[in-house]
Write a protein that binds this DNA or RNA. Structure first.
Lengths: 337, 337
DNA sequence: TTGTAAGCGTTATCAA
DNA sequence: TTGATAACGCTTACAA
């Protein structure tokens, strides 16, 4: 069968304990000994058995990433940030999707986590989702991305601020009749939807523009959702002159709806999104960019810190990551009538 | 500490062996006994220790997915297909990226696989990449996506045919001066690049059009790569009237280059891609769509079959998955001069 | 600095 | 159908 630690020990003329210590770079091993053990191990092409190591040590050396979607831009980009950090740290990354969209019946993730991973990273699962609660109830080291939850470390942007920036941009361009495309207004607090909604309304208030609820159009955070929402706005008797879409993908859909109506973003209606999606540049969409990969990277680092530390959740209340307005052709000053 | 199998055995009044059998639905257990054991286990909130189980059984119940990129559309979409199958089968999915692009020094994946997973899924790593060879040399159950390799099961589309379809479409529209945007012509055989190149040239030959090498422009399979390649074509004395881009993302870049030059896809130059990228519809790009999620799903199923079967690689030489031409506004008949 | 040996929590063989 | 019990391959007190 495969080479075991005993084979290495025998070949190096030491005990298995010493091999174990030497190979893991633990202190209290003679340099000569360590070197010899490492050489022998290499010669024998020895690889440690993770199962045995995990059983004996109680640590799994792996973390789970729980995400609602894998194939969407935001989530896969976050994931790539997470992966790069975990890979460097030599930690196994278990990927688990919890999407229930495709009619797939999905087991709740919590039971699959126990005794299997040392920690969990959760990407943008709404704060009121029962699955999130189950995961948090496990009490293991956890790091949240794009959601906040009392007492649990999380990495986010300032969604209120991001929405404010987008809305302010439109207001500064002279627009009064500003439409809103986003998730349902009844979203749970501490979610991106909720906060972006709030930021938008704040700016409208401050500008002395009262938001006409008929200009709010809601749907899924997808291209299709944005298209539908924009279509609704375009069939209004009095169209908005500018629209704030809560995500770039919704804005893409909005653009398509506009094109179907023979309208052009920037010329006929100004449009701004949030994300900094790769495709936004192509479509010439003004957007408030967020550092998506960094979200993942930093959350992963925070999780590693918990793992290496006491194992307790250390909610160091990190400040939100910065966002940046990128002005492109989809927004323009309100044409004087 | 945590509940173990012995606690369950004690509480149910049976041996640990029986608990193990009952909980895994093995035969030769009395129905009464099985039921009682399951109830007791549930009451005690018992979860099996994967490490212990793996150590004792020799199976890890997990597979690794090795991919060059995580955040790119093709790869994340394949990944989502893979994940849905593995999740249903109760198999852990270990995600490993091998991208060396971002200057990140990445350990070769092979050593990280040994004794850690029961099988491997590899997404679109070129057939001549040494990392792929290392992985294959492990001799474990393996399933390839988007590459073929003698003796190893793989799931692909017919890239030659896909390219033929795209090229034929342009030829049928009356174009003679057709440009090519893609990966370097010196690509390794059995890769998408190589085959798409071949399919394109075949059609040109068959149509009696001889391909002027100056109309071939090569770069990375990215938006930026496509933009650069198209820019080069546009600065030619005699521009092509139509262009075949080997991927939709390259076509997106090509579109941007055209716009910079005041040209419009379909009107001034016809453009066709390959992929069926979600964004293609938005950009009105004609493309040859491939069933990307299915690629992942089917490859995962093939891997599961190996796992459940003899453990040997069963190269059942599955036929390539079908592709489909989707005609949109970016291609049009050659305007009669 | 090194070795001894008792776990870690299952699975699987063999016998009953 | 069930039970004893020997692996599985490592880690980690504790001793030396």
């Amino acid at each position: 069968m495969a080479i075991t630690i005993r084979d290495v020990a025998r070949a190096a003329g030491v005990s298995t304990a010493t091999v174990s210590r030497a190979l893991r770079d633990l202190p209290n091993v003679d340099d000569q000994t360590r070197l010899r053990v490492q050489q022998v191990a290499a010669e024998l092409d020895y690889v440690i058995s993770p199962s045995a190591s995990r059983l004996a040590s109680g640590r799994t050396g792996s973390v789970a990433v729980i995400t609602p979607y894998i194939a969407r831009w935001f989530f896969s980009t976050v994931l790539s940030g997470v992966e790069s950090v975990l890979q460097s740290a030599g930690i196994d990354l278990l990927l688990m999707s919890v999407s229930n969209s495709s009619g797939q019946l999905r087991l709740p993730p919590a039971p699959r986590l126990r005794r299997r991973v040392d920690g969990v990273l959760v990407i943008a699962i709404p704060a009121d989702d029962p699955q999130l609660h189950e995961v948090l109830a496990l009490g293991m080291p956890t790091s949240l991305i794009g959601v906040t939850f009392e007492g649990v470390p999380s990495v986010t942007i300032d969604d209120v601020q991001a929405a404010r920036t987008a809305a302010r941009h439109l207001v500064n361009l002279g627009h009064h009749r500003i439409g809103l495309i986003g998730g349902a207004p009844g979203a749970a607090p501490f979610t991106a939807e909720y906060d972006r909604h709030r930021g938008f309304l704040e700016v409208m208030d401050e500008a002395g523009l009262q938001f006409d609820p008929i200009l709010g159009s809601y749907g899924h955070f997808t291209v299709a959702g944005g298209e539908q929402a924009m279509t609704d706005l375009l069939t209004l008797p009095a169209r908005p002159t500018a629209v704030f879409a809560m995500s770039d993908e919704m804005a893409f859909g909005a653009m398509r709806a506009m094109r179907s109506h023979g309208l052009q973003p920037g010329r006929d209606i100004s449009l701004v999104g949030i994300d900094g999606h790769e495709i936004s540049e192509l479509l010439d969409l003004t957007t408030v960019a967020q550092p998506v990969q960094d979200l993942g990277r930093i959350a992963a680092e925070a999780l590693l810190a918990q793992l290496h530390g006491s194992g307790e959740r250390t909610d160091e209340s990190t400040r939100p990551l910065p966002t940046q307005l990128i002005v492109r052709g989809s927004t323009a000053p309100l044409a004087r009538p």
